[in-house]
């Protein structure tokens, strides 16, 4: 029930942002849509027990330090993202197409699903790397790298993962 109420509030805020009007009719429709969304999707957000008995941990959301680290994470991420774009644009524009691709394996210490999702998405949006698959039990990520600098697990981990992992661990774990 708690999940449904939170979802209802979030959906209603998104609705208000999308319509950006306070007319009575649009508010009534918004309440209806938000209730529908909350009921249809609440199953996806409750921590379910899966076949192996693993319960996804819900991180502490009440520590303010986590939000400060998240604020620090945003500019770091945007800067990396911008560098990634200039890098790919350079490779695309270069007449010889200087690419050196391959799929490497990197190790991660992160355990919770939310943290892994953020890590995989950050890897995808940063210089020349694209996460392909994750092995959650052993803590490995498979990453397609447009310019492989190090084929080994440790070297690739140092270059690809470490800068995000330090921050993400402080936010989510």
């Amino acid at each position: 029930m708690k999940t449904k109420i939170v979802l209802f509030i979030v959906a209603f805020i998104v609705w208000l942002g999308l319509t950006w009007s306070v007319e009575l009719l649009s508010l009534i429709v918004g309440v209806g849509v938000a209730i529908l969304v909350a009921f249809l999707t609440s199953d996806m957000f409750t921590p379910l027990r899966n076949k192996t008995g693993f319960v996804s941990k819900v991180p502490e959301f009440k520590q303010p330090v986590r939000y400060l680290w998240f604020l620090y994470y945003i500019p770091v991420f945007l800067w990396e993202c911008l560098k990634a774009n200039f890098d790919v644009a350079y490779r695309v524009g270069h007449p010889d197409l200087p690419i050196n691709p391959g799929i490497v394996k990197v190790k991660t210490q992160l355990k919770t699903e939310l943290a892994l999702t953020f890590l995989a998405n950050s890897i995808t949006l940063t210089p020349g790397t694209l996460s392909v698959d994750v092995d959650k039990e052993k803590g490995y990520l498979y990453v397609h790298w447009i310019n492989v600098k190090d084929k080994g697990v440790e070297g690739a981990t140092r270059i690809v993962v470490e800068k995000f992992e330090k921050i993400l661990r402080r936010i989510f774990e």
């Binding site: 993202c81 197409l97 690419i99 995808t124 949006l125 392909v132």
Partner: peptide, 15 residues
């Protein structure tokens, strides 16, 4: 310009 699917995805997602 890129030769295979994975490299093309790199360009498509980032840029």
């Amino acid at each position: 310009r890129f030769p295979d699917l994975y490299n093309r995805l790199q360009a498509a997602t980032k840029c």
